[in-house]
C-alpha cells in the first residue's frame, strides 16, 4: 500500500514537472505573453521561428500560450479579465474582430500599417493584420476534372458530386462559408443553401475531420483555403490538388493580432507587432501557417503559382458581429 502511494507520488511529481516547465523562467528579462491557437504554436507552426527571431533583437522572453483555437484564446482572455497574463492575442480572424472590439479589452496598436498589402485595404485601430487567405472548395484534379465554377453550378450539380463542410457553430472556416454565402447572395442565400444541402455529405466539427474525409476520397470537394494546394505541392510534391475559384468571388479571411488594454508591456508588445509585419517575420508565414503574408515579399515559387481570386468578398466586422447568429440559424434551417 505504502509502495503504491510512493509510486503514485513519484509519477505525479514527474507529471507536474513536465507540465509546469512551460511557465518557469527565472531570468530578469521582461516576458511577453502571447495567446494564440494551437496550430500556430505547434512545433511546425510559425511560433518557434518568430520567438527565436524576435528574442535575438529584444532582450526579452516570448511566451506563446496555445489555446485549442483562436476563439478559445479570446475566451481565455475574457475569463481572466484584467488579471490575464496575456499581452497580445494573436490569430483572431475577421469574423471575430467585431465581437472582440465590442468586448472593450483591446488597446489601439498605433502601428503604421499603410505599407501592408491587405485585401480590400482592411484596417482596424485595435488589430493589425499579419496574414490572410481565401476560402475555397478544394478538389482533386484527377478525380474531378470539371469542378463547378460557382455556387449556382454547385447547386445545379448532379447529386453524386459530394462536398464536405464544417459546422459554422464549431469551426472557423464553417462560419466563413456562411459569411461567404451571405456576402455573395444576401437575402437569397437561404434558398441557395437549400439547393446545395443535398450535395453536403456532412458538417464536421472542425477543419481537420472534413479535410481527412476529403483526403480519404469520401468527398469530391472540401471547404478549405486557396492556399491548401500549396502544402501538398511544397511538402508532399503532390500536384493533384487545386482550389475551385467561384464566379461569385472567394471570401477573405484576415488573421490579426491585438494588444490588450491590461498589458503592462505595451511598448514591447508594439515592438513585437512591428516585427510580426516586418519582411523578416513575414517570410516565415507562407510555409508554416500556409497563408499569404501581408508584407510585400517574394513568395516561394509554388506559392506564387496559386490562382488569386478576382473578387475578394469581405463583410463589415460590425455587421458580422450583429447578424452572424441569424445567418447561421438560416443555414441550419435549410439543412433540416
Amino acid at each position: 500500500m505504502l509502495l503504491r502511494a510512493f509510486f503514485i507520488t513519484l509519477l505525479s511529481s514527474l507529471l507536474f514537472a513536465s507540465i509546469s516547465v512551460a511557465g518557469s523562467d527565472t531570468s530578469q528579462k521582461p516576458v511577453l505573453t502571447i495567446y494564440t491557437y494551437d496550430a500556430f504554436a505547434a512545433e511546425w507552426g510559425p511560433a518557434p521561428l518568430l520567438k527565436s527571431g524576435f528574442e535575438k533583437q529584444c532582450d526579452c522572453t516570448i511566451n506563446f500560450v496555445a489555446a485549442d483555437s483562436s476563439i478559445g484564446a479570446l475566451r481565455k482572455v475574457q475569463l481572466e479579465g484584467t488579471t490575464t497574463k496575456a499581452d497580445i492575442v494573436l490569430g483572431l480572424d475577421t469574423s471575430l474582430v467585431g465581437q472582440a472590439n465590442a468586448l472593450d479589452l483591446f488597446a489601439p496598436h498605433n502601428v503604421d500599417v499603410s505599407a501592408l498589402n491587405v485585401p480590400n485595404d482592411w484596417a482596424s485601430d485595435n488589430f493589425i493584420p499579419f496574414d490572410y487567405g481565401y476560402l475555397a472548395m478544394i478538389y482533386n484534379k484527377e478525380l474531378l476534372p470539371d469542378p463547378p465554377g460557382s455556387f449556382t453550378e454547385l447547386a445545379a450539380n448532379p447529386s453524386d458530386l459530394k462536398i464536405v463542410i464544417q459546422d459554422p457553430r464549431s469551426s472557423t472556416p464553417g462560419l466563413g462559408l456562411v459569411l461567404w454565402m451571405q456576402a455573395a447572395y444576401g437575402e437569397k442565400s437561404a434558398d441557395l443553401w437549400a439547393e446545395i444541402a443535398p450535395s453536403v455529405i456532412t458538417m464536421t466539427r472542425g477543419w481537420s475531420e472534413a479535410y481527412a474525409l476529403f483526403l480519404d476520397g469520401e468527398a469530391d470537394m472540401v471547404l478549405s483555403y486557396t492556399t491548401s494546394p500549396a502544402y501538398h505541392k511544397i511538402v508532399e510534391s503532390d500536384d493533384r490538388f487545386a482550389a475551385a475559384l467561384f464566379e461569385e468571388g472567394q471570401y477573405t479571411q484576415i488573421e490579426v493580432a491585438g494588444i490588450l488594454q491590461s498589458s503592462p508591456n505595451k511598448q514591447l508588445a508594439q515592438d513585437f507587432l512591428k516585427y510580426l509585419i516586418s519582411p523578416e517575420a513575414q517570410k516565415i508565414i507562407p510555409t508554416t501557417n500556409w497563408m499569404y503574408p501581408v508584407a510585400n515579399i517574394e513568395l516561394p515559387p509554388k506559392f506564387a503559382q496559386l490562382p488569386i481570386p478576382q473578387t475578394k468578398l469581405l463583410l463589415d466586422d460590425e455587421q458580422v458581429n450583429e447578424s452572424s447568429s441569424t445567418w447561421i440559424a438560416q443555414m441550419l434551417a435549410a439543412f433540416q
Binding site: I19, A22, A41, F64, E209, A212, L215, H232, W290
Partner: peptide, 28 residues
C-alpha cells in the same frame, strides 16, 4: 487534453493531442 485546453500548456503534449495537432496541420 481538451479539458486543460484553457490552461495554456503548449509544451505539454500527449499522444491523442499530437494526433489532433497533426490532423490540424495537413499531416494526416
Amino acid at each position: 487534453l481538451g479539458v486543460i485546453s484553457l490552461f495554456g500548456t503548449a509544451e505539454f503534449s500527449t499522444l491523442p493531442w499530437q494526433m489532433f495537432r497533426a490532423m490540424g496541420a495537413y499531416r494526416n
